[in-house]
Design a protein around this nucleic acid. Structure first.
Lengths: 333, 333
DNA sequence: CTGAAAGCGCTAACAG
DNA sequence: CTGTTAGCGCTTTCAG
């Protein structure tokens, strides 16, 4: 269990430590023969430079922190995949933190990061209205920060988001255009700002394009069975002919309710839903979905962050990525 | 953008660097007053020790690497959540790597890690039959390794898995016990060893408990539409009365096929499926699922790894965690 | 109780 | 072309 470090290589080859170091970095001031010898031994012993030492010396760790609410969630899984693609390409490493929606945890993580554990931070914040001294600390210490998806508009950092408002309006308009005259919006119970933004898009489209007298917004409990009950009751009493589900899970539950009360989709009622992994789409080939560019958000945010870290170009400029509306027709086989 | 390090604190307080260091570590050989002063300033300036420096000095990084195929997968999302719980409790950090099922990438990541970038590695291997020099390197360099889910039986490390074989047998027996006389197994196309292990459990249960003459194994393509077609054809021609889906996605597709050819579930045909996030269960409340203890696998593997890192107890002993069979009855409302 | 100094592994400025 | 040396920030002897 010998430690293979530069000192060891130098001793083995009867060279100075600095010569080995330079050879490994392919410096032009080292003779080809020496380089060859060094490379050969390094390869044979599978030498890897010690990350702590390089990091200390260079004052950079080649690591970025990714701080998200949690992972049991298709959206963030895809975001991470996008981030990972970039870090892999650019030889960076990902440190992963979950806040579990707890603002205090977010603060604690960020505080951990202010002194050079990472070169930059990608954050989807827990509480868009909380104060953000901890984030200011990052700015003060010169640690680049890029916000994505759940951002704080008051912060001055680069933000990468998707068009929740516009795509919700588009989705609603799509239902209107295909003939729906009474559209219900299934809202998630949890206090997620994105839920409100999407709702506003729904409201705007209704107002602009529909003759529907009043919006029909249903708050759906987090518990599946309770949500089932609530949706069941609403469908019976209100008899909407269109449903806009703000998250995929609600679309799936709604689908089951329709089945039970023998509503045909899409003949009797049309459903459209935000959806990332397309489980809902498996249900019924006629279900239309709006897919957030989750992977792209991760990829873009990571690229922005690394760009700032490497001090190429400016550190300003927000990015809003477009969601895709995917219409499916019954591929009757 | 001042660097807040020990030297800075020492200068501000007119103390020696070593005194500040000791005070921060709450050493008993520092006077209460000095400690108080140091703590106060450190808190005020939000001092955090530099991780690279501490790591270099102590020869430990407080980081573990988690190397998995990918993240777009409920199972691994839950595993990570379990790991994260442990690392958070024990003040460790997670470095995340995706192999994308590419053995060469796994080798490259592991090689990156052999020289002290992390204190230990959690790995779900890409190719259970490939050679494992790279993993031996970890052992040689004394970097603890715990394998989980996809393990190499020939390796001598701690392994954390779940009872794929037994739970598949249980699931099959469950179908037999509830009256199924012709049970089909929906196998995933991709060459995932776990698919074969589960299939063997199915075969064993058939042989032991059923009068079914021959097993009915259907290889399902990865593409959803193709899988639909294949399952559709099989249901028509073979008319099984029980389906065992090896993954949730296939259960969902199968459900849709049943709907199209007007098979009632569970009256005409019973479906049981491996499933982690219960999307399938939302479909039909009578769908019975087998849920792998994904979170537990992560939690257990992380605990084992940290135990080994901290050199408490032995480094041997595999863990096999039990899956849960969840039977659902139509909660007719 | 406090300070001076060495060294973790690496890189780079300075010498030759 | 190669070697000597200082120093990144921290902890820990060893001295006082």
């Amino acid at each position: 269990m010998n430690k293979i470090n530069i000192k060891y290589l130098a001793r083995e080859l009867n060279l100075a430590i600095s010569t080995v170091s330079r050879a490994l970095r392919d410096s032009h001031e080292i003779s080809p023969e020496t380089k060859a010898k060094v490379f050969a031994l390094a390869k044979r012993l599978n030498y890897q430079p010690n990350a702590s030492a390089s990091g200390l010396r260079a004052q950079q760790t080649k690591m970025i922190a990714v701080v998200i609410p949690d992972m049991v969630n298709d959206f963030f899984s895809l975001v991470i995949s996008g981030i990972e693609k970039v870090t892999q390409e650019q030889d960076y490493h990902i440190l992963l933190y979950f806040t579990h929606g707890d603002h205090a945890l977010e603060v604690s993580f960020i505080n951990t990061l202010v002194n050079g554990r990472v070169d930059g931070v990608l954050l989807s914040i827990t509480d868009e209205n909380a104060n953000n001294e901890h984030l200011e600390q990052l700015n003060i210490k010169g640690i680049p920060l890029v916000l994505f998806d759940r951002v704080n508009e008051r912060m001055d950092n680069v933000k990468v988001t998707s068009d929740n408002y516009e795509s919700a309006a588009t989705a609603t308009k799509h239902l209107i255009d295909t003939g729906c005259e009474k559209i219900a919006y299934l809202k998630v119970d949890r206090n997620i700002p994105v839920g409100t933004i999407r709702m506003n898009g729904y409201l705007e489209a209704l107002e602009k394009h529909s003759k529907q007298k009043s919006p029909l917004i249903l708050e759906c409990p987090n518990d599946n069975d309770e949500a089932f009950t609530v949706i069941h009751k609403m469908l019976q009493s209100e008899k909407p002919d269109g449903i806009f589900a703000s998250v995929e899970k609600l679309a799936v539950i709604c689908y089951r309710v329709c089945e039970q009360i023998q509503l045909r989709i899409p003949e009797d009622i049309k459903i459209i839903s935000f959806s990332n992994l397309q489980t809902a789409a498996l249900l019924n080939p006629s279900l239309t979905t709006i897919t957030q560019p989750a992977f792209d958000i991760g990829e873009t945010a990571a690229k922005e962050l690394l760009r700032i870290i490497k001090k190429k170009g400016s550190a300003k400029g927000d990015v809003v990525l477009k969601s895709r509306l995917i219409e499916r027709r019954s591929t009757s086989k």
